[in-house]
Design a protein around this nucleic acid. Structure first.
Lengths: 149, 149
DNA sequence: TGCTTGACTTAGACAAAGTCCAATGTAGGG
DNA sequence: CCCTACATTGGACTTTGTCTAAGTCAAGCA
């Protein structure tokens, strides 16, 4: 029952995304559809190579370059966020339309989306802004997840 | 006058660092001394290759591997922080003994140390902790610096 | 439905950042 | 001053990401 609901929601989100992209003049290809599908879901924070690995299971001939290109385009369009935790590779977060921060397990690297209270930007006093015009703030909470303890 | 004071302070910090390391059983080599010297200062956030480039001017035969090793050891010992902004390479921040966050220019990449008010950890409600035991939080403020506007 | 065209994809070369290893060098205790 | 364990070196290797030239195909149009 919940499984069915979740699927329906995901399907809706997917078609929304593909619809938005089509409206913005995106040519719809099998490769792009697969990349978008792989990225769909909650708490999804895959590296480019992980996205490629999963995409290959659905579309064996998809190339790494296309995955990189597509991810870059999704980021430019604001549909996907790049997340730089301390890991070596950048991660891609499809949850771009809801403000959130990240909670990272120091042992296994799991990442959860979290929603702190207040606006982090407001915590930086004028005297600490060095004349910058601020555009945003990212918070990475560090800890150890239940499975790793 | 201020310049002199600053130099004196830096010198004090440096010898403190080397002293602490010696006490922890660090074998003191020319290479390690040079890496530590290169890292000294305020708002210093160099990449490993930048550290290497500067170290080479003082000690031409120092190798990249040694710079990586030494930086890794300084991080393990808690004397230097690794900073992962959105850039490709990790940066190394010698200001490890005073809690601070970072303000990054989106255009030129300049990084300033800043001190927001309040404890970022306190902004994450229990219901958003997913059973993690929290150990810290990093805040990256994004903006455009005066020089880039 | 079947062209046409320019945007998209591909494979592989290349680049950047970082790791690893066997051989060599040296700091510091005895 | 000598040892020896620890540190350094150079180069090969890995991982992550970028670029390019050539081939392919989505989508508008007849």
């Amino acid at each position: 029952m919940f499984g069915f609901e979740t699927s329906a929601v995901k399907l809706a989100r997917m078609s929304d995304l593909l619809e938005r992209l089509r409206e913005r003049g995106w040519r719809m290809t099998a490769q792009r559809r697969v990349v978008a599908e792989v990225l769909d879901g909650d708490h999804v924070h895959l590296t480019a190579d992980e996205v490629h690995a999963r995409a290959v299971t659905r579309l064996p001939e998809i190339s790494r370059a296309t995955v990189y290109n597509t991810l870059g385009e999704l980021v430019s369009l604001g549909e996907v966020l790049e997340v730089a935790t301390d890991k070596r590779a950048k991660r891609y977060d499809p949850n771009a339309h809801q403000a959130h921060q990240h909670l990272v397990c120091a042992r296994c690297g799991t990442i959860r989306d979290v929603h702190p209270t207040g606006d982090p930007l407001a915590t930086l006093p004028d005297g600490e802004r060095f004349g910058f015009s601020l555009t945003g703030a990212e918070v990475t909470f560090r800890g150890v997840c239940p499975d790793c303890r």
